[in-house]
Design a protein around this nucleic acid. Structure first.
Lengths: 116, 116
DNA sequence: GGATTACTTTGATCAGCGTCGTAGGATGGA
DNA sequence: TCCATCCTACGACGCTGATCAAAGTAATCC
């Protein structure tokens, strides 16, 4: 029965109104997490956990995704065996105007690597 | 000879072009340092090290000032026995547009305490 | 059902950072 | 000269957080 086509496991997310500036700043202060955010912003579409380019192990990356999710920066959902990641750009923008975009922009000017 | 009216001890400062986003983010990720920056921004004028309101000891505060200075966020100079602190707002703004102002604004919306 | 893919959890390690108290150096005033 | 004020330097300490490997769970595919 192909009823539950997808979506079995669910993921908890905070409301942006519940996240503190401290959480967001801490989340964005880590270079790996900033790389994740940058790639998400640069790509412009949701990405699976496995499709990010980072210098750390998979288990470490899971930890970073958790941190970003708990800080309200990303939204995660399952699609089959894969876990997708979406930037909560608009929501964070509403909570802390200009913050996320400034960080993404700043990261872009420093990296200047191909967002191929 | 009232020549050296002030200025005996000097302080080293990085050029903003030398500071990394990582440094700035780390500097602004600490709540005490953010409080320092907020008070500096809110006051609108340079402040002595001793005039900040924080929950930490003086020696700890010195450490935070060093971190902020090395990140290019503040500029320090001596005036007599006092050490003044100035926000390098414009310079940081040029290096990472919108970042510092967004953080200061965000901190303001959260604190909402009197910057009396 | 069994193998495969995809991510998580656990447990451990290890470095770094924030914190403090105390002692020290520098300036300014009496 | 002596003292008071300001800030810094020096250990020391505890804790958090980033990291990994290995084992575990969950969905998919053949």
């Amino acid at each position: 029965m192909p009823r539950p086509l997808t979506a079995a496991r669910t993921v908890e997310h905070p409301d942006v109104s519940e996240v503190s500036l401290q959480q967001v700043m801490e989340a964005l202060a880590d270079p790996v997490r900033r790389a994740v955010v940058s790639q998400l912003a640069g790509r412009g579409e949701d990405m699976t956990c496995g499709s990010f380019v980072t210098p750390v192990s998979v288990s470490t990356l899971t930890h970073h995704f958790n941190t970003l999710r708990e800080a309200g920066v990303i939204r995660q959902y399952y699609v089959g065996t894969a876990k997708m990641n979406a930037l909560r750009a608009d929501e964070i923008e509403g909570r802390f105007p200009g913050l996320l975009s400034a960080v993404v922009a700043a990261a872009g000017t420093e990296t200047r690597a191909g967002t191929t």
